[in-house]
Write a protein that binds this DNA or RNA. Structure first.
Lengths: 150, 150
DNA sequence: TTCTAAATTAGAATAAAATTCTTTAAATAC
DNA sequence: GTATTTAAAGAATTTTATTCTAATTTAGAA
């Protein structure tokens, strides 16, 4: 695996914050000409340092500004139950992130809803029909303080 | 505030997953010519539906694949302590997300480190010097199941 | 140090994409 | 039904991405 240098790291940090700079602009920022910057970015893409480029959307405007962290305990801890849970959760659009975690609970999900009413509906109707779930515990987000991706 | 239609929504969903499509490609996907697609995207940007465009990086390759959710209780619940905490946390690069939450703890942080050793160093040396923190509780991520941004 | 080879860069040339503009069509109001 | 507004298509233009070649730098060996 190729090694990356300081200029690569600069480019990654810049693009992580704003991927719309032109190569000419990037070149000026890192004191190079456009060609090597273009080649460096292609190399970083091909070597997997850059996974993809995405647009960040305004959750509030799209009626998804109500964030809840939802802890999940499975009914039992066998592979089938676990696989079933993962498979079910992947289909639920309100679940934007999900992690298998240490501690009292098995999974931590980040859920994105319009409001409390929507979240309640999500818990009753969506989670309610996921057979593998034993219990849940909701932690509500009152405000977002920091988000390096937002 | 302008209203968005189904095609706008399609464009948002596509760009949220991959912002590198050309307008020509997008036009084909939504069965329009490039011009109206271009104008729609500009409108979505100007109206704030699209906040920004970013590159997603490979955390593992950048030595940041060890994820921990860290719950925080403040020493006291007055405005000064709270503001001091927020100000301190914004400067710590390992903290990639932070939320003010309901429940037993005051804040939930997502922390990104190289490994357990790095995380330990983060807790001792970085969090350890944030005066406003009363107590912490760490939940370790064993695996990422779903991430609509990753 | 000096030579050689490999890698990197700069700058020009080309291809492709974004962006603008004008015309046409469609939808809505009157 | 006509007028008016809005949205779309297609062509023209500008900008950017991408490729190519030559020059420079770097690293290693003699």
């Amino acid at each position: 695996m190729e090694q990356i240098d300081d200029i690569d790291l600069q480019l990654l940090n810049i693009l992580h914050d704003n991927s719309k700079y032109t190569v000419k602009e990037l070149a000026k920022m890192v004191n190079l000409s456009p060609s090597p910057v273009f080649e460096r970015i292609k190399r970083l893409e091909n070597n997997g340092y850059i996974k993809k480029y995405i647009a960040l959307l305004d959750a509030e405007k799209l009626n998804r500004g109500f964030i809840v962290f939802c802890n999940i305990k499975l009914k039992q801890h066998d592979r089938n139950i676990g696989n079933q849970f993962v498979s079910d959760i992947m289909k639920i659009e309100e679940v934007v992130e999900c992690y298998n975690i240490s501690g009292d609970y098995d999974f931590l999900m980040k859920v994105s809803a319009k409001d409390m009413k929507h979240y309640q509906d999500f818990v009753f109707n969506k989670l309610g029909s996921v057979e593998s779930i034993g219990s849940t515990q909701s932690t509500f987000v009152m405000s977002e303080i920091k988000n390096m991706y937002g």
